[in-house]
């Protein structure tokens, strides 16, 4: 049992936190702009590399480089929206999906051209895990990621339920026509959707780098679990996306635990778990666990 917590549950929650932060953006963009944003993973990659540059140039730890990552990623997202998504806004949203597919490729090839394709790490050397009550061994980076995600979740909840901007976002996600009739400035809300989505994606990207390493496919590889998490939580429900991310992260790790003497699935098929969950949700409950929008 202790082994399960130390080596499966905690890494699962860590992985889930990363999915959760990415899925919030996917869910909000799908809810407000109404399209599946295929470049979201590559925004994470941009964030991770921006932080890497700050770590190299300024010699600061990765966590301190997060503000830098956020600024670069937000600029990338706003620029992509201005140049590539906004001109297509009056067309059926599927055209924007295609455009975002292209933006994913553009972002990644820029990263590959500028930083090369070798894997990088924020810091070298072994970190000693912290031991609690003589039984729980938790890596410092896992504690940092989980606590930061918890704090961000609380902040996000406060933002969506208490601030005027957050409430407007929920209004647009629920019913865009009604929101427009009520006089909400849709373009401003879209801008803030990008800023929040990209900021969280940047943080998630840095966390991936902290947890494993920084490489150019980092974000694209996480796209599937992030989509699954957003669907599981219900489209347009950011807090649902966080729950979805955690569920998928924990499920992926738990499936490789030998519960009955043998592992449920081979570890190499771990990333299939997200797909299975996505398929089940699409078949039985396409609106998600928390009654999101069904587009």
């Amino acid at each position: 049992m202790i082994d399960f917590i130390n080596f499966y549950l905690i890494p699962g929650i860590t992985l889930g936190s990363i999915y959760a932060l990415g899925a919030v953006g996917v869910s909000m963009i799908f809810g407000i702009l109404r399209f599946a944003h295929f470049a979201h993973g590559d925004l994470m990659t941009v964030g991770a590399y921006a932080a890497l540059t700050a770590v190299w140039v300024l010699g600061i730890p990765a966590l301190a480089a997060i503000p830098f990552a956020i600024i670069v990623t937000c600029l990338a997202a706003l620029l992509a929206d201005r140049l590539f998504y906004r001109p297509l806004r009056d067309l059926p949203t599927i055209y924007t999906v295609i455009a975002s597919f292209g933006v994913a490729l553009i972002l990644r090839s820029i990263v590959q051209t500028v930083w090369g394709t070798d894997s990088q790490v924020y810091m070298t050397g072994f970190q000693k895990p912290t031991i609690f009550f003589d039984t729980f061994r938790i890596a410092t980076r896992h504690i940092q990621i989980i606590l930061a995600t918890a704090a961000l979740t609380v902040a996000l909840h406060y933002f969506l339920s208490r601030t005027r901007l957050g409430k407007s976002m929920r209004a647009v996600a629920d019913d865009p026509d009604l929101a427009a009739v009520a006089g909400l400035d849709t373009e401003r809300i879209i801008r803030w959707t990008w800023i929040i989505g990209a900021a969280l994606a940047a943080i998630a990207g840095v966390f991936v780098g902290l947890d494993t390493d920084v490489h150019t496919n980092l974000g694209w590889n996480l796209l599937l679990p992030m989509f699954a998490a957003a669907l599981l939580g219900g489209i347009g429900k950011p807090l649902g996306a966080i729950a979805g991310g955690l569920i998928i992260g924990i499920a992926e790790e738990a499936c490789t635990y030998p519960f009955f003497g043998d592992t449920l699935i081979a570890p190499s098929y771990k990333s299939a778990v997200a797909f299975v969950i996505m398929v089940l949700i699409l078949i039985y409950r396409p609106q998600g666990l928390f009654r999101g929008r069904l587009m």
């Binding site: 399209f35 599946a36 796209l223 599937l224 587009m295």
Partner: peptide, 16 residues
């Protein structure tokens, strides 16, 4: 479902 869902699922099937 809306075409976006097929787009997401088709990424998944390619990965599997």
């Amino acid at each position: 479902l809306k075409a976006d869902y097929l787009a997401m699922a088709s990424i998944g099937i390619a990965e599997i």
